[in-house]
């Protein structure tokens, strides 16, 4: 097994592209090291991207923030600007792992691990976040929702790495929130989850909304019908009921050791409702 620590994204991409064997990209390592220890993967090449210039910084950009691919959870959680603009994304990211894991784990890594249960991904999708990808053929920007294609599968091609994620600017009177269900209070993986982002008009009526569900389908699911159920409303009981139904209807989960189909389907709706209420309140709406 070879270990490389390139200083540029282009160099990292080229090394990964040139390696004929199994490769892994190492950022925080909170997934890769666990997989190595468990014998789930035996890579021929590990490329550590933490030393790429700028990859650990958070920079303001066009009213939003660009989050470097090696920014750890604890670092984002301490960034007042991002927390104020996208509190739901930050709270989702901060739910990953333990305090120790928070010192290492990254949103880009969470995304690239490809788990349908990844905590930060539904919040990023609801936020309309965009990943910047560097590959052997250059740089491209892709919405986060288009990155996962199935459990453990991504739309990235060989040699491509994510170098940053852009959280866009947003209108005033906007709010977002993320909730997950786990059987414990921490140190666990989502059995179902929901990220909601919405914007209100001056009267408190929802003018735009995005509802993304995790752990209830092979990939994160952006549910248009759920958004439609609350746009134009003030989250009255009928809207919430419609939201729950739309969210549950969008689920196609599996039965496994963490939860049943019926459980995930029901709880995804409940979480969407509860996350919407929090996002509504954060946007300045009152009920």
């Amino acid at each position: 097994m070879r270990y490389l620590r390139p200083n540029t994204a282009a160099e990292a991409a080229q090394s990964l592209a040139d390696e004929p064997g199994v490769t892994r990209v190492l950022a925080g390592g909170t997934d890769v090291l666990v997989q190595l220890k468990a014998g789930m993967v035996e890579p021929d090449l590990i490329v550590d991207i933490k030393h790429i210039d700028g990859i650990r910084s958070i920079t303001a950009e066009a009213g939003g923030f660009r989050i470097g691919a090696a920014v750890a959870g604890a670092e984002l959680g301490a960034h007042a600007g991002v927390k104020a603009l996208w509190p739901g994304v930050v709270e989702a990211f901060e739910l990953i792992g333990s305090t120790q894991v928070q010192g290492r784990c990254t949103m880009a890594g969470n995304l690239c691990n490809g788990s349908p249960a990844a905590d930060s991904v539904p919040a990023l999708v609801a936020a309309g976040a965009v990943a910047r990808i560097v590959g052997p053929k250059g740089t491209r920007d892709v919405p986060v929702r288009d990155i996962p294609t199935g459990p453990g599968k991504l739309s990235l091609t060989k040699g491509e790495i994510i170098t940053s994620i852009l959280l866009p600017a947003r209108p005033p009177r906007s709010g977002d929130a993320y909730l997950r269900f786990i059987p414990r209070t921490e140190m666990d993986i989502a059995v179902a989850s929901a990220g909601v982002s919405l914007t209100l008009d001056a009267a408190g009526k929802i003018t735009a909304a995005a509802v993304a569900l995790g752990a209830v389908a092979p990939t994160v699911r952006l549910v248009e019908a759920a958004s439609a159920a609350i746009i134009g409303t003030k989250l009255d009981d009928a809207a919430l009921s419609n939201l729950m139904q739309a969210a549950s209807a969008a689920c196609s989960p599996i039965d496994d050791k963490r939860g049943t189909i019926a459980f995930r389907t029901q709880v995804a709706g409940v979480l969407a409702k509860r996350a919407a209420l929090i996002a509504y309140s954060r946007a300045g709406g009152s009920k």
């Binding site: 414990r184 209070t185 921490e186 666990d188 993986i189 496994d256 050791k257 963490r258």
Partner: peptide, 16 residues
């Protein structure tokens, strides 16, 4: 056995 680890064999954590 589907859950041979502390992730999916859930002993209570302190905050529980």
């Amino acid at each position: 056995l589907q859950n041979a680890g502390f992730l999916d064999y859930r002993v209570p954590v302190a905050s529980d």
